[in-house]
Design a protein around this nucleic acid. Structure first.
Lengths: 238, 238
DNA sequence: ACACGGCTTGAGCGATCGTTCAAATTGCTT
DNA sequence: AAGCAATTTGAACGATCGCTCAAGCCGTGT
């Protein structure tokens, strides 16, 4: 008999627990989330959880593996599908995080970043998985930057820039949480755009006066415009 | 009778509690720190704590006010005393955070940043105080940047750059915690230095070919050299 | 039809959580 | 030296924490 109706009751018990725990850890943090809350949200009894996972610590680790698993299909691929231009993808990704945070009233931010500061000191296995999440994130962005070809300086270390993008994003999200509005995040993204402008200018002038093919891929569809550009004028969400 | 010996027993009860709580919140986070641990570390009984503070939440707020109070004397003034050049001060400050993290084996990072992600969603009063800590931090750095005069582009928004420095620092510390070593932080600081190089170059060429007085204040004493420069070559601490 | 293994149920475990309070002590005032 | 408020003491509270386990349910193989 197929299940329907209550979405929390669909899919396997294990998956429901992972999903509920992932969301709760993201919203409230690891320590602030009681097992009882996870049970309620997943619609499951204690015995079932402890049948699927040895304990809360292991659950955290599996949640981080789950996050690693959905990074591609849920986070990166939508951006890639909606935006073809490699550099635009970076800022589309930023906007996706922005939307996620705005939707929740400036709560949350990056699920991995939040856990990074809370558990990576005390829980080595979780720290390693958080690190792997970041590595996968930056690797994907690095791929985009490599696809940007000579729009960026030839000598530029694409991996290094990808890590810098993560640095700026996490720093911006952190300050946005502290401010209670998205202005710091928008400003951080605008400053990241400044950096890109500088790099693209550098790539355009140097390297034998090569014609820089501005917006080299006119791209399919994607009428995303400049919505988030020059956001020094702080928008006040909420 | 004046107290001596055990340093935790000197100074008023209230101060001892604040100091212990500040350190523990920094090391382990707010939720992971039990009141019992604070009591033990401060050498105090429950009644004394609840005589001085209504509860743990209020203690957190007072700790954040305490942090705001020591920001100048403990964090900023040592940097200002040791380093005269305004731009160098920025990187001396970064190195101070680096040292703090290295000393503790890559734990901790920024006490305020850690709490920002853990409590600012659920505790509005704490969020506001965290915000004020960040504002005070960036205001101080902004002062340095203003003192840099025309070594930076005239049109550059000094406050905006100060906030970007905080963004990069927090993002770098977060990734360093996740990596378990300081390489990501060093890389972030190196990239911040790239940004400064670009800005100083821009200020030097533009604005009527004015002679840029490189290292305008030869500075007193401070033989700090270039220790932390060009840190793309990732140092592997630990 | 029956046995069996995987999964779920939910009452309840001991430990720890943040907190209380009556009594004892301390330190200042007179 | 007596009085009094401020402070400290520490046993104990109810609530919640992460977690256990005997019992029951259910799908499958034979």
């Amino acid at each position: 008999m197929s299940v329907q109706g209550d979405p929390a009751r669909e899919a396997g018990t294990r998956q429901r627990i992972l999903r509920a725990a992932f969301q709760l850890f993201h919203e409230q943090g690891y320590h602030a989330t009681g097992v009882a809350t996870i049970l309620r949200e997943a619609g499951v009894n204690p015995g079932s959880l402890y049948h699927a996972f040895p304990g809360k610590e292991t659950l955290l680790e599996q949640v981080l593996e789950y996050a690693l698993g959905i990074l591609g299909p849920v986070v990166m691929e939508p951006v890639e599908a909606a935006t073809a231009d490699p550099v635009d993808r970076v800022f589309a990704l930023m906007e996706q995080y922005r939307d996620g945070m705005a939707r929740a009233g400036c709560h949350m931010g990056c699920p991995i970043g939040n856990l990074a500061l809370e558990v990576s000191d005390s829980h080595p296995a979780a720290r390693e998985l958080i690190h792997r999440n970041f590595a996968a994130w930056t690797a994907r962005v690095q791929g985009w930057l490599e696809a940007a070809g000579d729009r960026l300086p030839r000598s530029l270390d694409r991996g290094r820039l990808a890590r810098f993008i993560l640095t700026v994003m996490e720093g911006g999200l952190l300050q946005a949480r502290a401010a209670g509005n998205l202005a710091p995040f928008d400003e951080a993204v605008a400053q990241l755009r400044d950096v890109f402008r500088g790099l693209e200018a550098e790539a355009g002038t140097r390297s034998g006066g090569r014609r820089r093919p501005r917006r080299r891929v006119p791209a399919a569809g994607t009428a995303r415009g400049r919505r988030m550009a020059d956001a020094t004028s702080a928008r006040e969400d909420r």
